[in-house]
């Protein structure tokens, strides 16, 4: 039995002369939460659109839920659900009716049956009290949750979520994380695109970093952080950085009015000692996924010492 929920082999997509995806190869195991990270235009959405049967690839092979995305796209679609990033409500239907319509179009039968499923899905995401309110009156975050409820109600085995926490407040994000972990525990495979690196680090079993259409790194969040080679980081006020001698072999990134220096522990500790001896304010911490990500795809205003 196929152990992969998704298996991509040399998948490529060209738009005219532009290569949006270049021979993308990786697999996602069943039951994983897998995140696709990358800058805007990196190719994440193109990959998701191909994997969900919305877009034809130019070349390569891709199977989802064990079915070929070109030859068996109907079978693929039976096993997936997608939560698009931008979808808005077209009519004045209630949240419950919106999900019911989605389920009926998917092939579920019965108004009462779909209502029960829709209400259960809304309950799972904590929106049951808004089931009968016009979806247009829901906040942006609530509407996004409603789309997630559609995916939950579908009972698909592979869920594709395109930036699911965009527009959500902190509490709603945490609630969303709980829901996604619950879905994982039920055996669902979740493919996530997100710009929130803390979210990817917290939720993902594995991550693929896509840059300019190429998968430049794949692994667990901790492995990606470890592979970055950074052991420690220190944040220093931009105005103080000239007072310090920054040794070679560290990475220096500008962050608003701060400068972040990343590198091996012993080198960073030397910088910290210098700063403390000059009574400068510093903040020291271990590297996180954001540091590793910026190292992989390149940060604005970065310089290599």
């Amino acid at each position: 039995m196929n152990q992969y929920a998704l298996d991509s082999i040399k998948l490529a997509k060209n738009y005219g002369n532009t290569q949006a995806l270049k021979e993308v190869t990786f697999s996602i195991k069943k039951g994983e939460i897998f995140s696709l990270l990358g800058r805007n235009g990196a190719g994440k959405t193109t990959f998701v659109r191909i994997a969900t049967g919305q877009l034809m690839p130019t070349s390569g092979k891709l199977s989802v839920a064990g079915y070929d995305i070109i030859k068996e796209v109907e079978k693929v679609r039976e096993n997936i659900a997608v939560v698009p990033q931008e979808a808005r409500v077209i009519r004045s239907s209630s949240a419950c009716e919106f999900i019911q319509l989605y389920l009926l179009m998917r092939g579920n039968v019965g108004i009462e049956n779909t209502r029960t499923i829709a209400l259960n899905a809304l309950k799972k995401i904590g929106l049951e009290h808004k089931a009968n309110i016009s979806a247009r009156q829901l906040s942006g975050g609530e509407r996004h949750k409603m789309l997630l409820a559609c995916a939950i109600a579908s009972d698909a085995s592979v869920l594709f979520l395109d930036e699911p926490s965009i527009g959500l407040d902190v509490h709603s994000r945490r609630k969303l994380w709980e829901i996604l972990l619950k879905l994982k525990s039920e055996g669902k495979t979740i493919v996530l695109t997100t710009h929130y690196l803390d979210e990817a680090e917290f939720l993902s079993d594995r991550i693929a970093v896509i840059n300019k259409g190429v998968v430049c790194k794949i692994g667990s969040p901790s492995a990606i952080i470890k592979d970055s080679g950074f052991e420690l980081r220190v944040d220093i006020d931009e105005s103080d950085i000239e007072k310090l001698t920054i040794p070679k072999g560290v990475k220096v990134n500008k962050l608003a009015d701060k400068v972040r220096v990343l590198g091996e522990e012993k080198i960073v500790k030397k910088i910290v000692s210098q700063a403390l001896s000059k009574k400068l304010k510093v903040s020291v911490a271990g590297p996180n996924l954001e540091d590793a990500f910026l190292n992989l795809v390149g940060a604005e205003n970065e310089q290599q010492n």
Binding site: R49, T52, I80, A81, P84, E86, I90, Y102, M105, R106
Partner: peptide, 18 residues
Amino acid sequence: FFKTFDLYVASPTSPFVY
């Protein structure tokens, strides 16, 4: 405009049913 189309394309909904 509303972008709900993707929700249906990436599902078993056929063009005929939609």
